[in-house]
Design a protein around this nucleic acid. Structure first.
Lengths: 163, 163
DNA sequence: AAGCTGGCTAATGTTTTAAGAAGTCAGACG
DNA sequence: CGTCTGACTTCTTAAAACATTAGCCAGCTT
């Protein structure tokens, strides 16, 4: 990593993408609901049951995630049943998969039970386990030491030092 | 994704690596402190200031992250100064980078400001932006539709159906 | 038409997370 | 020897997040 610490003082942290992302999915229940959505859960009661949270929390989280566009509420109808609503992944939600995979992977490595992970995600074509890796756009594999943090176009400078 | 939903009923969700990971880093402040640690922040007051949280929260989070082994508290001494303590990344902490990169990437794509991201992470050797990608162990790139969720060795079966 | 079931909402209480202000403490420095 | 500064801790209070319980409503089944 670089020693851009001094420079960082002049940066604003309010415009951070991580902080923005966490405004939407920054609670445990939101992340666990996204996990369940990836595992295929679609119905209200199943979310509540499988995530292990109460119905009000489920309701609040599903509304927030729907409002934020990660899930959408779509009507469906099974034969002989009335119309119901399912919470489906949108593209915005599907694009969240790397976060969950990275989290799962870290948990598998550093916080797993002795028996190992309870769930494995595999590539459907070749059956090999999936994980999140860091790469640069030129395809090089990246680890912690290979990174430099740089200013982006959206950086708000706080006029040298005011604050 | 597979339709392993019915099977999922028999699974336990308490042994989930994602849930376990979130027990450690499941708060906004913990994740933002990890972000700052990646950006190079090492000192107590700097964490508080840059993350934008109060000192009690900073103290609690740093203690938890230190206890969990993502950070370590190491003494250091600048010339003419007394001994102070820095919060440094451990291997366990460094290994958390993919989660933050995936989160940043999602935020850049789906929750960024109009000006674009405020910070860019680059490969130090070639300068290309870094991102988190999903790959299987055979090196194939993976997207949402290419995954199958399977039982892992640590799966706790809840004896067919007894909740 | 009455009951049942899935899918919620409402009311209430508790726990967690956090802010803000103030105080402590160790040691360099004058 | 007293002050100052960085690094905290200790209050106190507020705001989220969440659990529990209960109730509602639509509409299929009987």
């Amino acid at each position: 990593m670089t020693d851009l610490l001094t420079e960082r003082d002049a940066w604003s942290t309010t415009n951070c993408s991580i902080a923005r992302a966490l405004e939407i999915v920054g609670t445990k229940s939101a992340l666990l609901i996204m996990r369940e959505a990836f595992f295929g859960t679609r119905r209200f009661d199943d979310f509540a049951k499988r995530v292990g949270i109460g119905e009000p929390a489920t309701s609040a989280r599903l509304k927030e995630l729907t409002a934020a566009g990660l899930l959408e509420r779509v009507p469906y109808r099974e034969p002989g049943q009335r119309t119901r609503y399912a919470y489906q992944m949108t593209e915005k939600g599907r694009d969240f998969l790397p976060v969950l995979m990275a989290l799962r992977q870290w948990g598998d490595t550093w916080a797993a039970s002795e028996q190992g992970p309870s769930v494995v995600v595999r590539h459907d074509e070749c059956g090999a386990p999936v994980h999140a890796v860091l790469q640069c756009e030129n395809g090089h594999d990246i680890t912690y030491g290979d990174t430099v943090v740089d200013r982006g176009p959206g950086l708000i400078r706080t006029s040298a030092d005011s604050d």
